[in-house]
Nucleic acid binder design. Structure first.
Lengths: 207, 207
DNA sequence: CACCCGCTCACTCTTTCGAGGGAGCCTCCA
DNA sequence: TGGAGGCTCCCTCGAAAGAGTGAGCGGGTG
């Protein structure tokens, strides 16, 4: 355990990259081996730099942080990936953890807690930000939308009518209505507009 | 001009604070005199530390960065305030610039451009991130919603029916319909759901 | 002063939504 | 093998939403 933790930073904010470097390099047992600003770059740098641990933002310019993580974990299963982001609804957190994230931290966390979490995660424990965990617990057991339902809800957010959506997907309007009924019930929404609001808040979709 | 630029940082992400400090302290003509994590704290620190320039995030835990800026500019009109944020629709940028922001920068900006912008702004020029400016130009001349309209649209996003909104505001349902008609036209939306989507994207309201 | 604009309200009419039923098909998993 | 759940489709019906049109009031501005 004398080897320092080799960390790769993935974030498209240069200032934040800089901040992480500063905080992490302060710790004798950690070392930043590189920084990437995009998902694809992060995969390439994993190849080259062989980090033990990746600190990854969720929103990246090219592919989502979750997809980048999936790609990295597929090639290098021993690499631990920590999502470090500003906030996310329960849906994103769930997807991240299911996809094998070793941790889910918020950027609002104090420096000390972040380095401590990195240490814990590197030692094999799983860390989830208390705020995120509370949010998760609140939505525990809450149903998530199917792919089809998300597709449809996105169209709804764009102002399409059921009939138009049906036409786009080559389906019957009745089918769309049926999906909408399920969406409203799953999200606990009283109409399509609130359904979009809730879905965005919970990280099920973006606008 | 031998005095360094005294900078106050306002951001609720410790890591980003750290990053700004590192980048800025690298410059001989700049000095970070303090960091605040909330809007109220930023006002208090302005009092104590008398900075020349404030780097302010838009989203803060207590009050919005714009409101904090307004408060600061009211008390210390010579202090220049730069909004430094991840992104915002044209509505937020417009409000910020109207309220006297000296600059509007994005966190995705490279380090060099940020320090250069700080220098320019301190010298009296106004700097707006090219990406933001493009977005602004795109929406130039686009109508904005009145206060009443925003209030109503927020209720719409919560899934309230026209009748319910009318009751809440002690208005006629016909009045709400009339407002909705104006909202749809101003935003170029085909229905209330898309109106909410567009308003959120443009920074007119949050969910 | 006239004018614009935000806010208010009214009436009609068509379209759309969402609630209420039900049903068949598929796949995955216990 | 038997659910469970996702996807598809059908019917009815009342309640909303939105288009169309019109109008009065108050405040601010050229």
């Amino acid at each position: 355990m004398n080897q320092p933790i080799r960390i790769l930073i993935v974030d498209d904010h240069p200032l934040l990259q800089e901040g992480i470097v500063m905080v992490v390099e302060h710790e004798p047992d950690m070392q930043v081996v590189g920084s990437a600003a995009t998902g694809r770059e992060s995969i390439a740098l994993c190849e080259r730099l062989q980090p033990n641990l990746v600190l990854m933002d969720l929103r990246l310019p090219d592919i989502s942080g979750i997809d980048a993580m999936i790609a990295i974990r597929a090639k290098w299963p021993t690499v631990k990936v920590i999502l470090l982001t500003t906030f996310a609804g329960d849906a994103e957190v769930n997807r991240a953890l299911k996809a094998g994230a070793a941790g889910y931290l918020l950027k609002t966390m104090p420096r000390k807690q972040i380095v401590e979490s990195i240490r814990q995660i590197h030692a094999g424990r799983r860390r989830i930000d208390p705020g995120v965990a509370a949010n998760l617990a609140e939505h525990m057991g809450l149903e998530t939308l199917s792919q089809r339902e998300v597709e449809i809800l996105k169209q709804v957010a764009e102002g399409n009518r059921n009939k138009e959506i049906a036409h786009q997907f080559a389906l019957s309007e009745e089918t769309i209505k049926s999906h909408m009924k399920n969406i409203l019930e799953k999200l606990g929404a009283s109409d399509r507009t609130q359904a979009v609001s809730i879905a965005v808040r919970r990280g099920i979709m973006q606008l």
